[in-house]
Amino acid sequence: MSALFTPQVIAALIAMVKAIVILLGVVILAAMLIWVERRLLGVWQDRYGPNRVGPFGLGQVVADMIKIFFKEDWMPPFVDKPTFVIAPMVAMTTMMLGFVLVPVTPTWGVAPHLNVGILLFFALAGLAVYAVMLGGLSSNSKYALLGGLRSAAQMLSYEVFMGVAAMGVVMCTGSFTLADIVDAQKGCWFIVPQFLGFCTFSLAAIATTHRHPFDLPEAEQELAAGYHTEYSGMKFGMFFVAEYVGVVLVSALLTTLYFGGWRGPFVDQLPWLAFPYFFVKTSIFIMLFILLRGALPRPRYDQVMDGGWKFCLPLALLNLLGTGAYLLWKQGG
């Protein structure tokens, strides 16, 4: 027996437990976001929001979950069944997988030292498009199809400059690894040197999660529910939670790439501060996303495209060029 628990095996077990804890934490946080979002919007909109189930309405999440799990898992007869089932899974999986990259604290994280790092995130974001596209396509419904089309076009154009925008950070660090990126921000957060990159990256990040104002694939006023019009029960729930996981992931990435991740004053002396720092910073971004939803109207589809290609992409390229020039000048000096 004792031969089984070699130090490597124990280390692996610990890593697995950590990974499970992180993923569970993310899912629970994402689920709680449903409540947070509704309550916050309530505050901003002069109304209560859910306040009936449990203290402060906190039980709403549980109630929603019970409802959505036990709801009849109905599939319209006209859909393409295998694809219809796979699409929400893809949505959920890709967004959850993104979390392996994030260094929550110096010691907590699934694979923050992965050498492809941020590239993996882009790959996953690319795959997430398939969820929406397949969902739209397999539904065999016109609104869903239009939603799928919109998302394909939108995500393609926004991922182009999302990569370009983040490259600034990579160039400053000299590594794709997120743990290195956090370390490189010991002196100064990248928000300062990479401000343009931050702006474009955060826009693209919202677009990737298709949150408001980039929720054109599911624009309620135009396409009913867009790509998930035909979904119900837990399959819809997976799309729904995937969206919130996406919000958490993107907020965590923004924190990691531009706001020093878990870094903050006195974190080297008091290592337990790392998690609170990370948590608070991520929460601020999450709330910012929610506030955006409460504050902004939605641009038209072609305006979103224009914004991507004619405004953000040149800006991101400019940022890349500037960063490159600065780094070369520093090396030469």
Binding site: Q45, D46, Q221, P297
Partner: peptide, 13 residues
Amino acid sequence: YVQDVGAMTPIFF
């Protein structure tokens, strides 16, 4: 009208 542009808040006010 504002809601149809996609902004959800004004209608509550």
